[in-house]
Amino acid sequence: MTMTPAARAVEVWKVYGTGEAQVQALRGVSAEFERGKYTAIMGPSGSGKSTLMHCLAGLDTVNAGTVYIGETQVTGLGDAGLTKLRREKVGFIFQQFNLLPTLTAAENITLPLAIAGRQPDKAWYDTVILTVGLGDRLHHRPSELSGGQQQRVACARALVSRPEVIFADEPTGNLDSRSGTDVLNFLRDSVRQHGQTIVMVTHDPNAASYADRVVFLADGEIVDEILSPTADSVLDRMKKLDRNA
């Protein structure tokens, strides 16, 4: 039995606007994201990275093509179906503003479970909390945490419901290198130790080197990919892409 990939895009087209102002953000993108793997998506600004991620996650609709999360076909789901998908199968980490200011860090982490009306699996919750490494700051409000700490809380929140796949759009984009490294380690550990699937958009070759595989996007098309990347190999490939563009 072959395992279905955690997320899959088949011939996905995404077009913004009409007529003169039309932008083809995605032009027939097909990609698979294997379970238990850490994939980075790279590409020049405006190449469609965020768009692809939003379409994969069901945050945005596609014009043509099909998207699957696990066995579930995302394209064509209504709001109720999408809500269920977000509760059970997908986790998110945004570049910023990931936390509700009224809740403590701990409450933010368990929020997806509370929303879904599920009890946290005690052992898994403890594991996640331990990995976040916030210690006694766990009961502080987001406004009392540093940017890196906040982003780690956001990662923990995405992890706690054990989704099929976590999407992260430039999660380290707003952080200094030290805090960024913390977050990247956190994400990689969750893939290595707990078999989590993660898809991450980034501009940073160093961040991409934490992934198992890097997919390159340019002008709405997948143009290249590297397995087991290093910062240098990624940088190298990017320079090549720039020259072609």
């Binding site: 709001d79 809500t83 977000r86 509760r87 998110f92 509700l100 200011p101 929020l111 879904a116 929140r157």
Partner: peptide, 16 residues
């Protein structure tokens, strides 16, 4: 607005 987007993204339904 952004909070609302966030809670919707992590699974809060319209009804909720």
């Amino acid at each position: 607005t952004r909070e609302l987007g966030l809670v919707r993204a992590i699974g809060l339904s319209r009804g909720a």
